[in-house]
Nucleic acid binder design. Structure first.
Length: 268
DNA sequence: TAAGTATGTTAAG
DNA sequence: TTAACCTACTTAC
């Protein structure tokens, strides 16, 4: 489930429920027992996101660094904690709320310098206020790598995943295989502004919707799209189906072990 | 019951 | 380039 919008939403959700409060911490599954023991009965001092990385602050004790990977998930609940299931890596709870973390790629207690090192290897994030699209463009403009590959490189730009990649390329009519050095500056500026708007909307709604009103199913006389990622999109996972704008069959091809989706006509 | 898939990343070969 | 990892859900046998 996790692209950058998910992680920023999780930071806000943790801040709202646990920020400034003393929490109980445990690792029912056992793989984070030592870390959880150090956090138990401490105050969560803040929650922060950079790209797909989540940081939960615990004052001088340090930070919990969480990366959900492909399958990690948080589940929130209100009221007293129910008995945990055996896959819960980390449970954080007050008397009013609890959060259960399952299946993360990373869940570790780290120091402030270790946290800084993680920030240093991540590119600008459309959801971090003040992050600089010029820095991203500088890297894109001197690369022979495809724009599609560059958008998934977290050192270049942080937080974009497979859905936002496919959708932002479609919305700007960009051929995914275009070399970064051939992407015009004005197109990049528009793509960044669009990512900022789309991902902010994603944080608000907790899903990815990229289809403009005039192409929505209701406006086109089609039934609403039902898909388990839960949003309206132009090309992501619509292989073989007609493009919502021109009707051409949407194509897919593996690129660096990820599925890339695009419309060969709108993105020529 | 087993296999396949997924909005991701890292390490080994 | 391939495999491995973490979980849950769907599909195939």
């Amino acid at each position: 489930m996790p692209e950058g919008h998910t992680i920023h939403r999780l930071a806000a959700d943790h801040q709202e429920r646990f920020g400034g409060r003393q929490v109980r911490a445990s690792s029912p599954q056992g793989k984070f027992s030592d870390g959880a023991a150090l956090l138990d009965r401490r105050v969560m001092t803040g929650a922060e996101a950079h790209g797909k990385h989540l940081f939960l602050g615990f004052g001088d004790t340090g930070w919990v660094h969480v990366h959900l990977g492909l399958i990690g998930k948080f589940g929130f609940g209100d009221g007293p904690t129910p008995p945990p299931t055996d896959t819960v890596r980390l449970r954080i709870a007050t008397s009013a709320h609890y959060a259960d973390l399952r299946g993360p790629a990373a869940c570790a207690l780290i120091t402030e310098p270790e946290k800084r090192a993680i920030h240093d290897r991540l590119g600008p994030d459309p959801l971090r206020p003040g992050d600089d699209p010029d820095r991203v463009y500088t890297r894109i403009a001197r690369s022979r790598i495809s724009v599609a590959a560059l958008l998934l490189d977290q050192k270049v730009i942080a937080g974009v995943g497979n859905v936002y990649r496919a959708e932002v390329l479609f919305r700007h009519g960009v051929d995914p295989f275009l070399a970064g050095r051939d992407l015009p500056r004005p197109v990049w500026d528009a793509m960044w502004a669009d990512l900022v708007a789309l991902m902010r909307e994603g944080v608000r709604t907790n899903r990815i919707d990229t289809v403009r009103p005039e192409h929505e199913p209701a406006a086109m006389g089609r039934p609403p799209r039902v898909d388990d990622h839960g949003g309206e999109v132009y090309v992501y996972r619509r292989t073989g189906q007609p493009c919502l704008v021109c009707g051409t069959a949407v194509r897919t091809r593996p690129l660096d072990a990820r599925n890339l989706f695009w419309c060969p006509r709108c993105q020529a």
